[in-house]
Amino acid sequence: MRREMDPTPGRPFRSVRTVSMSLAAVLVLALVLAGCAGTDVVGRDAVRTFGAVMAMEPVEPDFGDGWQVTVEGVSFGFTSDRVFLDLPLAPFQEAGLDPGRLPEGCEADTAGGRLRVAASLDKPTGALDPDDLAGSLSRLVGMNPDIVGYHAALGHYNVAIGELALFEWAEDPSANDKDVVIALKPAPLAEAGVDVDGIAGFLHAEVDMGMGETMKLVLMTVDLG
């Protein structure tokens, strides 16, 4: 007669062992995955799409201390030890910016008329390849994977400039009218006296960040056509 036996009747130690082994396996898997570039599909695709978008007109890539891409007067760049955004200062000044009240990581160059937002990298990338923008970003992401993100609501990848700003680009520019987005956190600007709703060329809006989370951001969007 066919009979099916209970897997573990009356043998609690076996259950404890099974649970422990299962949890240990999951922990090991999580640790392995944490260091595994192969499963970092966001990083992988961010690099791939970054190269494609930055090759489009009118983006101007340039290599100095590191890489810098400029579009409509706003530059995003990264060197071996930091990432930054370089923005025109005037719209912020006109909206009431008091440069002396800017937070750490934010700097106003009143003489040059620029506002710079920068953040240091946790792990320096070492020398970047002046001939390969995407390869340099790949190096940046490989060393500092947490710097890259995916913004599902807009179909964008992004690089975080510390806690202050995001530089985003479209996953598929042909299907997106916001090919590049510069996003600034409004709170530090507001504390520096900026009327975040009155910055010329920027929009203060609530953005769906995914997983049910929304965030108010000061946005500048660029359609590369």
Binding site: T18, S22, A25, V26, L29, A30, L33, A34, C36, T39, D40, V41, V42, P145, D146, V148, G149, Y150, A152, M209, G210, M211
Partner: peptide, 23 residues
């Protein structure tokens, strides 16, 4: 954990979920 953040590491997140589900 940051390495399992679903927005940043969705595949890690999915694989660990699968690993917890299979047992």
């Amino acid at each position: 954990p940051a390495s399992l953040n679903p927005m940043r590491y969705p595949l890690n997140n999915a694989l660990v979920q699968l690993a917890l589900t299979l047992p």
